[in-house]
């Protein structure tokens, strides 16, 4: 019964999420936007670290590059912010090419540190960019949100202020990005390439001997996640409206929290980041008034999960119940020809 029910529940939840700007207060939409941003980043990091074995601590490079490319598209080129978001994604993917060239020579912990170093170099380089405010950053020109495509239509449809309509638009885009990430990850991981990635995780040499090219697959994941991370960063900073090198390239906000979310939710599982982001948000809410204790509790919880539930809360759940609505098992490809076996 749970098997036939779970897609219905998921569809209902999705419908509610899409309807939210029409029925919920603007503060809640903004809150959820923040959660979805972390979710998209966590899904990307999960693909990298959990499935491709690339433990990157430099994802903030793509968030920052995406954000800055979007600001450049608006301020320097006068483009629509939504076009800027796409440019942000592309800029991040382009930046990932030389970054991979450098970082892929390193393994394990060295790869992690290498990506962090590259991200910091990008932060320092961007803070030299005087046209975008240098080290102190810059803001979106007044009225940018108002002039964004579709905002007028949404404003009329929902009968809200321009600012709320812009929030609704970015929220919908981030929600769609999260859904697209989930669907794309599922399809990718169930494909031949996903099977190859899993084999590489088990034994890279043995994978090579059956014709899987680890470098090619890892590079593909690195570039694709850089693109999605760049899109997400650009979209996030449309809502923030102000960018500084320190905020856009923050290792804590864009990578450390994201690692925490993925690890407690369940690294290497598809629903892991979703569970992780819900737990993270609940903790953040519950402990908001306690200052630094909040971070200490997060740290302790992270350590506990790593010690006692290595596949995270989601892994614990599937192990105990045997329920897995998004199984990643591979089925043989359907052959059009009739089978000849007995």
């Amino acid at each position: 019964m749970s098997r036939s029910l779970s897609p219905l529940i998921a569809l209902f939840a999705l419908a509610v999420l899409y309807a939210l700007p029409a029925i919920a207060p603007r503060a809640m939409v903004q809150d959820l936007f923040g959660i979805l941003t972390l979710l998209v980043l966590a899904m990307n990091w999960n693909l990298l670290a959990g499935f491709a074995g690339l433990v990157s601590v430099g994802q903030q490079a793509f968030v920052g590059i995406g954000a800055y490319a979007m600001f450049a598209a608006i301020i320097l080129m006068g483009l629509d912010p939504l076009v800027g978001v796409v440019i942000g994604g592309i800029a991040a993917a382009v930046f990932a090419v030389p970054m991979a060239f450098f970082a892929f020579r390193l393994n394990g912990a060295y790869f992690a540190i290498g990506t962090w170093v590259v991200a910091d170099i990008a932060r320092l380089a961007i803070s030299q960019w005087k046209a975008l405010g240098g080290g102190t950053g810059t803001s979106l020109p007044k009225g940018t949100a108002k002039e964004m495509a579709f905002v007028d239509g949404i404003k009329e449809m929902l009968d809200v202020s321009t600012a709320a309509a812009a929030d609704a638009l970015t929220y919908w885009l981030m929600l769609s990005l999260a859904v697209a990430m989930l669907v794309a990850s599922y399809i990718f991981l169930r494909s031949r390439m996903g099977l190859g990635l899993q084999a590489i995780r088990d034994n890279e040499n043995a994978a090579r001997s059956v014709g899987v090219d680890p470098l090619k697959l890892k590079a593909a994941v690195f570039l694709l996640t850089a693109f999605a991370t760049g899109l997400c960063g650009a979209l996030a900073f449309i809502q923030i409206t102000r960018v500084t090198p320190d905020a856009a390239f923050s290792v804590i906000d864009w990578t450390a929290f994201v690692i925490f979310i993925t690890v407690i939710g369940g690294i290497g599982t598809l629903p892991g980041p979703i569970v992780g982001v819900v737990v993270f948000y609940a903790l953040q809410r519950a402990l908001a008034d306690y200052g630094t204790i909040y971070l200490i509790v997060l740290g302790c919880l992270g350590i506990a999960v790593m010690l006692f539930a290595r596949r995270g809360l989601w892994g614990l759940f599937t192990d105990r119940t045997g329920i897995d609505p998004l199984p990643l098992r591979h089925r043989p490809p359907r052959v059009a020809k009739p089978s000849h076996s007995a």
Binding site: L195, A199, N203, A207, S209, V210, H330
Partner: peptide, 24 residues
């Protein structure tokens, strides 16, 4: 080649271990 020591992929099922052989 069928390598010495078999070198199966532990996280893959029997069927997946066979399917990955078709990669090349």
């Amino acid at each position: 080649m069928v390598p010495e020591g078999r070198k199966l992929f532990p996280s893959l099922t029997v069927e997946e271990n066979l399917l990955i052989g078709a990669h090349a």
